[in-house]
Design a protein around this nucleic acid. Sequence first.
DNA 1: CGACAGTTTGAAGCGGCTCAATCGGGGTGG
DNA 2: CCACCCCGATTGAGCCGCTTCAAACTGTCG
Lengths: 257, 257
Amino acid sequence: MSRLLIASIDRFGPLQNDVRDSLNDVAQEVEVIAAGQTIVSPGAPSRLRLLSRGVAFRQHVLAGGGRQILGFATPGDLLDLSGLFTGADHEVRALGPCEIRQISAHEVRLLIRRHPSLLAALCRAVMTEARVQRNWMVGLGRRTALARTANLLCEIYARQAVVAVARDNRCPFPALQSDIADALGLSAVHTHRVLRSLTKSGLATVRDGELVIHDWDGLAALAEFDPEGLRPLHDPRATVPARPAGVADPAMAQAFG
Amino acid sequence: MSRLLIASIDRFGPLQNDVRDSLNDVAQEVEVIAAGQTIVSPGAPSRLRLLSRGVAFRQHVLAGGGRQILGFATPGDLLDLSGLFTGADHEVRALGPCEIRQISAHEVRLLIRRHPSLLAALCRAVMTEARVQRNWMVGLGRRTALARTANLLCEIYARQAVVAVARDNRCPFPALQSDIADALGLSAVHTHRVLRSLTKSGLATVRDGELVIHDWDGLAALAEFDPEGLRPLHDPRATVPARPAGVADPAMAQAFG
DNA sequence: CGACAGTTTGAAGCGGCTCAATCGGGGTGG
DNA sequence: CCACCCCGATTGAGCCGCTTCAAACTGTCG
């Protein structure tokens, strides 16, 4: 029963029924991972891993001991797209407690060989991730600490809204201030002050592992948040209804909510 | 005759002979583009474009008028991977005069349908680009202006060394200081000072549209440059000889040099 | 109760920005 | 052939965002 996996891949271009059937037949391994544990090590043998619960992050550690967080993953995200055909070039860790489902590299290879449309979907997944990365690059290079932080919070919420994990303007986000700092290219101290100012402006609060949005419109405006950058790319031949930002995808919501 | 295109895609996993044959039969349009002109507009209809001569760059322009350069492309690079199945999310422009070769979206679609291994190769090309982006993110977030600049120069040289366009420690790089600034997330003034200090330290010089490396080892050390991050991903089932940084790929060199 | 991890707050310093002026080269029109 | 202009490189001065260092505070766990 890999309802979750099918729904997650389906976002990137409607899968044919025969692909769904094949995916259904594949043995799937479920694993629970504690906060802070490594999910994918750099260079690890490739598999197809789906984050089914929790929040994870990708990071690159520098020689000097510092690190840059390269992105966050929320339920419904595939974790090792960057290393599907080869070893991963970065590390993926659990931010909070996570649950993942994975299928072996061998199975993936068989599936892909049998169903080129699956490969196309995975390819679109990779392109979607690359697009999110570009948005981060813009933020790191050209946005102020405040806008950058606001943007991150918008992204975290919008991602989890799709799978209906975010509700009533709140969603899980078990990050330390130093984690947020390493994601935004800031110091932990300054990150704290920025978060503080966001709270005082009545925009959003990060506390006790939870993100609370007080004023979505205000936050999005400050961030110049573009939800388009998060939308999964799909097969252009198929018509997929566009949803406004922060609104759940029915299929994903049913699977993950 | 699409020798260049075949060699370029071949980097991302050896193509079967039948794929090569098909690529050979495809009509290819050659276009020359003046410096500064747009090659790919955001949302443009997808095609498969190869940069055969010159240097191009990807950029995202901000509401406030600023911009972030997201990456550079050198001969042998595919230009609209991010929009292969859908519209591009960013702009690609010619930095200096460029020559591109392209095949229509329709042709691409046919080729991909007929040859899944081609799709796999393109997928690896996308993943390779995503990896380069991650390296930029690390730089923008966590490296000093000096290291970041050094890193960029290393990347520009190493990319063009593969296709033997870079030789004798020099290669084309027709960027204004303001271009470099927008790539590194710096101001033009500060970029100038950093370049100046690199020159005075005897490491590298950017002048008259050309990059000259005076001390590769010193520059690479300052940059903590990792050539691994640029290496094209290829099919893990195939054995491809690893080449040290800055050394030409024989096939690419023959095609582009 | 102390030990520890993470948050909070203050103060000082620096990297990089902004503003502003000058310099240099290539093109253009007189 | 020269005067002019324009764009980009260059240089200086002052400022601000963010960093670093340091200390106090809070909650949690043994």
